[in-house]
Design a protein around this nucleic acid. Structure first.
Length: 598
RNA sequence: GCUUACGUGGCUCAGUGGUAGAGCACUUCCUUGGUAAGGAAGAGGUCACGGGUUCAAUUCCCGUCGUAAGCUCCA
């Protein structure tokens, strides 16, 4: 605990030192906020002239000089008038704005300032005693980026400088090395290296093309999910990507999501009565599934009804947020909707969580966490953001929470992140670059079925509205595969691997035997290839290792004579020899059981 | 959408005010090699696109498109 406090002080103090150095290089620049963050700190500026990463060396040098100077952090508390006068004298309009707010909205008596050397900053602290308490080699400037003042896009864009900082030089080194190592797993890089997907300007940004190798991974995931869904008694349906806009007026989605949809297509079909029909690419599948529910009369005996579809949806995501497969404009969702009665909610939600557990366990995924997003009754914009039905919010949240507790999966709660129609459980993960993304999202919907007039006939012959659980354990193919690429660093387990077996003939004499092998494996639907290139044997080992092929079969005279194979698995030094039959049985077993090892 | 940077053969990148280069990949030939690059030859680029400055622009300037990091957004 103490060390953490110390680290916090170091990062906080370094933020001041950074600002101090930046003001030396760009005098007259204005200060924003400069807090400690995970792995370091940042500081926001309005600069008199842009800074570039080339300037980092100079700034770091100045920061080190300040550290060596043993400047003492002196605390000073100022009342409103003095504080405002001080900030005025400092010429810091943004700090002034914030100070005013602190005094007026939060009724503070005084504000704290810290002075070190010639530099003064309004700040709560705490700081290290003096700058010499910081190891001069324990920080490194990372990047320069834009950030809105106070996080609002209505405000001015400031320049943010990010930095890493730790207690020791060694920790910094370790962290930077780990980060650089992580970047090698970036799905955009591996997607190219391993021919998984391609994004083409002439198709459009955020609209990835899945190459043969990437499509194998999608298909295998889809097969996996289909099996799980079959076992949990989901029924598959197929619905179109295009729909009339009116559908979303009726569901109530339109006011919330019009901005996130592609522009409407005006179809001039019935112009005689002065009407056009507007069509739009669907941004979600739910209303289509609701319409399938509504295609006939339903009885309470039919519930729960579970409709599943790997459905394509399109969202007009802002250009600047698009990134590889992680943020796209066209995506394919592992979607399903469960229509159930109130007393079935908990059990169904629990089953959904259990399916998540199976999926994530099978894939060996551990670096994610769960978040229960609830309605925020205090949100001033709550009436616009959420369906106005406090009782329904409370009761559905309780049911979801109860199911989560029963599932035994750890989760935390966040107010104000719910969907407009109900509470939500998200599975969150971090990309190699440290950005947080949602990998799976599940909601309990108490509002839209009613708006669409969905009903079932209950025991008492009354028409009742079903609840709807939206679930997508494997999220979208795009984001989920991106996550898997980074998770496996491109070295997929055999069942997922685009090429499962690569045969490396040592010489041309054994080609007949190799072809027998290929035929036997293909009869079992194994994705097998043979490397008949003119390359040397060494080169073949290298090339196929770099492709992260999970199983390489070395076939020479010895193997051909004995009817055996020598198996070299990805990332494993030792090799094993098996009879042809033994190998095929073992391989089929691994594929069938979806084992994690290659 | 915003801030900053970047855009040179399929990939990774060098370079220049006088219309381009490397390595890998690719093609052909030689080599049939037992565990991470065998050898040789060859083909491949309107230097993202549009405009401007200039005798001359891939290089300088402006715009557009695209990409990256971050911010905003993220059903």
């Amino acid at each position: 605990m103490e060390t953490n406090d110390n680290l916090y002080k170091i990062r906080h103090s370094l933020a001041h030192i950074l600002a101090q150095a930046v003001l030396e290089v760009r005098p007259g620049s204005k200060l924003g906020f400069g807090p400690p963050i995970e792995n370091g700190f940042y500081y926001d500026f309005i600069l008199t002239e842009p800074l570039h990463e080339d300037d980092f060396k100079d700034i770091e040098k100045r920061m080190k000089a300040i550290i060596k100077n043993k400047q003492v952090f002196e605390k000073e508390d100022l009342k409103f008038d003095d504080a405002m006068a001080r900030l005025e004298a400092m010429g810091e309009p943004y700090k002034q704005e914030y100070a005013k707010e602190l005094f007026e909205k939060h009724n503070l008596e005084y504000l704290t300032f810290f002075k070190n050397g010639s530099f003064v900053d309004m700040c709560e602290g705490p700081h290290v005693e003096n700058t010499k308490k910081i190891h001069p080699g324990c920080f490194k400037l990372k990047s320069v980026a834009g950030a809105y003042w106070r996080g609002s896009s209505d405000n001015q864009m400031m320049t943010r400088i990010y930095a890493w900082a730790f207690e020791t030089k060694e920790e910094l080194k370790e962290h930077v090395a780990a980060y650089q190592e992580a970047l090698k797993r970036d799905h955009k890089k591996l997607g190219k290296d391993l021919d998984l997907f391609h994004i083409d300007d002439e198709i459009g940004k955020g609209l990835p093309l899945w190459l043969p190798n990437g499509t194998v991974i999608r298909d295998e995931l889809e097969k996996f999910m289909r099996e799980l869904e079959f076992k949990d008694r989901f029924q598959r349906i197929t619905t179109p990507c295009l729909t009339k806009v009116q559908l979303y007026e009726k569901t109530g989605h339109l006011p919330y999501y019009a901005e996130g949809m592609f522009p409407f297509m005006e179809v001039k079909e019935n112009e005689q009565d002065g009407h056009h029909t507007n069509y739009v690419l669907r941004p979600m599948n739910c209303p289509h599934h609701h319409k399938v529910f509504d295609s006939r009369k339903r009885s309470y005996r039919d519930l729960p009804i579970r409709f599943a579809e790997y459905g394509n949806v399109f969202r007009y995501e802002s250009a600047g947020s698009l990134s590889g497969l992680l943020r796209v404009r066209g995506m394919c969702m592992n979607d399903a909707h469960i229509y159930c009665a109130e007393d079935q909610i908990e059990e169904e939600f629990l089953k959904v969580m259990k399916m998540h557990e199976t999926v994530y366990h099978t894939l060996g995924l551990h670096n994610f966490w769960m978040r229960l997003s609830t309605w925020d009754p205090e949100d001033p914009k709550g009436k616009e953001k959420y369906v106005d039905d406090p009782a329904a919010w409370e009761s559905t949240q309780d049911k979801v929470r109860a199911a989560m507790v029963k599932s035994g999966l750890p989760f935390n709660e966040v107010k104000g992140e719910a969907a407009f129609y109900g509470p939500k459980i998200d599975f969150q993960m971090k990309t190699v670059t440290g950005r947080e993304e949602t990998i799976s999202t599940n909601q309990l919907d108490f509002a839209v079925p009613e708006r669409l007039g969905l009903t079932y006939t209950d025991k008492d012959n009354e028409q009742k509205t079903p609840y709807c659980i939206h679930r997508a354990p494997a999220g979208t193919h795009e984001r989920f595969v991106a996550f898997l690429i980074e998770h496996f660093a491109g070295a997929f387990p055999t069942w997922l691997a685009p090429v499962q077996v690569m045969i490396l003939p040592v010489s041309e004499n054994v080609l007949d035997y190799c072809n027998d092998l290929i035929e036997a494996l293909r009869d079992s639907f194994v994705r097998v290839e043979i490397d008949t290139s003119n390359d040397s044997f060494n080169k073949k080992i290298r090339t196929n290792s770099k492709k992260r092929i999970p199983n390489m079969l070395i076939i020479g005279d010895k193997e051909a004579e004995e009817g055996t194979v020598t198996l070299k698995r990805y990332g494993i030094q030792e090799q094993d020899q098996f009879s042809k039959e033994e190998f095929i049985t073992m391989l089929m077993d691994k594929i069938k059981n979806r084992t994690l090892e290659s």
